[in-house]
Design a protein around this nucleic acid. Structure first.
Ligand SMILES: [Mn+2]
Ligand SMILES: [Mn+2]
Ligand SMILES: [Zn+2]
Ligand SMILES: [Zn+2]
Lengths: 138, 138
DNA sequence: TTAATAAATGCAATTTAGTTGCATAAACTA
DNA sequence: TAGTTTATGCAACTAAATTGCATTTATTAA
């Protein structure tokens, strides 16, 4: 994706165009897999950790990224495939976590948007995390 | 559940019977919902935080507890409903997270044990996290 | 019942993750 | 290009989790 396209995404989400934001978004687009704060720190060493935290948060707030649930206790982020807005997020795709390399990916597969729950529970969202072995590790 | 039953569970999993382990397990059995380290710290103040961490980990390793994926970055643990062993965990039930009170519960609802993934991916397990409003908060 | 052994605990220190305040620098607006 | 707003870097801080080690407790076998 071109520099101009990335700028477009930032503008659409009403975010100022800065080097850090451009580089972080580029990194997500290149990697395609989900990334964590520490991935950014390792790769984008020219920026302060705090700036990277704040970049992730601004992307989260504006609906460019979403957080992916995981068991490890470190936040992981993925690009929103769909048309997410700050108000309405639509993350109805499956997440895949490789048990060998640890990488987390957003798959295109859609999640069933209904699930049966006991009487009295009201469902807002459904999140599906599949674990196994990814093609690279097979 | 009786003290003796709890001892039985510990023995089955080849864990030494200690006060801390008895109390932690009792707490999980009483609460029925998923618990975090900080829940334990608040409730079981007579034990050191480190001991509670280690207790959770020993339960995790021996298949008494499982970790529940979430987006917040704090680990949450639930009793394994099914017949889990250290080697093979079978957490085929739905997890529900209330968006009001934050509580996480293991539901009896079974998770579909098939999911379609792109060619090349091998699925080991499926985790389903449903969020919404629980009966208590409705 | 006791002595020997192995494992669990508490405490202090350390590492890792994430946040906040504030001065400065950069981006946008007109 | 000047004025305004927002982002960044740095330092300090809070919170979560881990590690090392001395001491205590649980188990085992005499
Ligand atoms: Mn995703
Ligand atoms: Mn569960
Ligand atoms: Zn992999
Ligand atoms: Zn609730």
């Amino acid at each position: 994706m071109s520099q101009e396209n990335i700028k477009g995404i930032l503008k659409t989400h009403q975010l100022r165009i800065t080097d850090c934001r451009m580089d972080v978004m580029q990194f997500f687009l290149d990697e395609k897999s989900a990334l964590s704060q520490s991935d950014l720190e390792n790769q984008l060493t020219k920026y302060d950790r705090v700036t990277l935290y704040r970049t992730l948060n601004s992307f989260l707030d504006s609906g460019i990224l979403h957080r992916i649930p995981n068991e490890t206790g470190t936040a992981t982020y993925g690009m929103c495939h769909d048309t997410c807005t700050p108000d309405h997020h639509e993350h109805n795709h499956v997440h895949f976590k490789c048990n060998k390399c640890g990488q987390i990916e957003c798959l295109e597969e859609k999640v069933a948007h209904q699930v049966s729950v006991p009487f009295g529970y009201k469902v807002d969202g459904i999140n599906m995390i599949v674990d196994g072995i990814c093609p690279k590790c097979a």
